[in-house]
Amino acid sequence: MLSIGQLSQQTGVKVPTIRYYEEIGLMPSAGRTGGNQRRYDRIGLDRLGFIKHARDLGFSIDAIKSLIDLQDHPDRSCAEANVIARTQLADVSRKISRLRALEQELERITQGCSGDGISGDCYVLTSLSDHGLCETPH
């Protein structure tokens, strides 16, 4: 049995976050000692590891709830899990695309600045002041 602090150390999830996950039903309610301290078993450790990995991959709390529900019902098809994962993949792909466009725009802006003018003639400051100078849609 692990205390909440030990669970936090083993998973890298902060104590307030563990409490929050328990409060919203992502984590099962912890057992309690006579002194009312939370105690987590292997199931709690595994569940928190699952949640942390899913969060690290960018899944929303709602998506994780759905995935946990699927995990808790092994008789159901994993097609739903695949749909949730594909939706997350599409979201990540959109974000990467947006970040690449931002990277290109920042590269263009920084290349337009020689660095030896005064701030009134600074291409970076001028570009940031006038969104119309952007080549990337915003």
Results as ranks from 00 to 15, higher is better:
residue 31 G to Y: 11
residue 34 G to K: 05
residue 34 G to M: 10
residue 36 N to E: 13
residue 39 R to E: 10
residue 39 R to Y: 10
residue 39 R to H: 11
residue 40 Y to I: 05
residue 40 Y to K: 04
residue 43 I to E: 14
residue 44 G to M: 04
residue 44 G to N: 01
residue 44 G to H: 00
residue 48 L to E: 02
residue 49 G to C: 10
residue 50 F to E: 01
residue 50 F to K: 02
residue 50 F to A: 07
residue 51 I to M: 09
residue 51 I to K: 01
residue 52 K to H: 09
residue 52 K to A: 08
residue 53 H to V: 00
residue 53 H to C: 10
residue 53 H to S: 12
residue 57 L to V: 00
residue 60 S to R: 03
residue 62 D to V: 08
residue 62 D to P: 04
residue 62 D to H: 10
residue 62 D to L: 10
residue 64 I to D: 00
residue 65 K to W: 06
residue 65 K to C: 05
residue 66 S to K: 12
residue 67 L to C: 00
residue 67 L to R: 01
residue 69 D to Y: 14
residue 70 L to C: 05
residue 70 L to W: 08
residue 72 D to N: 15
residue 72 D to L: 13
residue 75 D to K: 06
residue 76 R to P: 03
residue 76 R to F: 09
residue 76 R to D: 11
residue 78 C to A: 12
residue 78 C to Q: 10
residue 78 C to E: 11
residue 78 C to I: 09
residue 79 A to I: 06
residue 82 N to Y: 10
residue 82 N to C: 10
residue 84 I to C: 01
residue 86 R to G: 03
residue 87 T to K: 10
residue 88 Q to S: 04
residue 89 L to E: 11
residue 90 A to K: 14
residue 90 A to P: 01
residue 91 D to R: 09
residue 91 D to P: 05
residue 92 V to A: 13
residue 94 R to P: 07
residue 94 R to L: 13
residue 94 R to Y: 09
residue 96 I to C: 12
residue 97 S to V: 06
residue 99 L to S: 05
residue 101 A to C: 08
residue 102 L to R: 06
residue 104 Q to E: 14
residue 104 Q to I: 06
residue 105 E to R: 03
residue 105 E to I: 05
residue 106 L to W: 09
residue 106 L to P: 02
residue 106 L to I: 06
residue 107 E to C: 12
residue 109 I to V: 15
residue 109 I to R: 05
residue 109 I to F: 00
residue 110 T to Y: 08
residue 113 C to I: 03
residue 114 S to T: 07
residue 114 S to K: 07
residue 115 G to S: 07
residue 116 D to K: 13
residue 117 G to I: 10
residue 120 G to M: 09
residue 120 G to Q: 14
residue 121 D to C: 12
residue 123 Y to T: 07
residue 123 Y to Q: 14
residue 124 V to C: 02
residue 124 V to M: 07
residue 127 S to V: 06
residue 128 L to N: 03
residue 128 L to K: 04
residue 128 L to G: 04
residue 129 S to I: 01
residue 129 S to A: 15
residue 130 D to S: 12
residue 131 H to L: 15
residue 131 H to A: 15
residue 131 H to Y: 11
residue 131 H to N: 11
residue 132 G to M: 06
residue 132 G to A: 11
residue 132 G to Q: 08
residue 135 E to W: 00
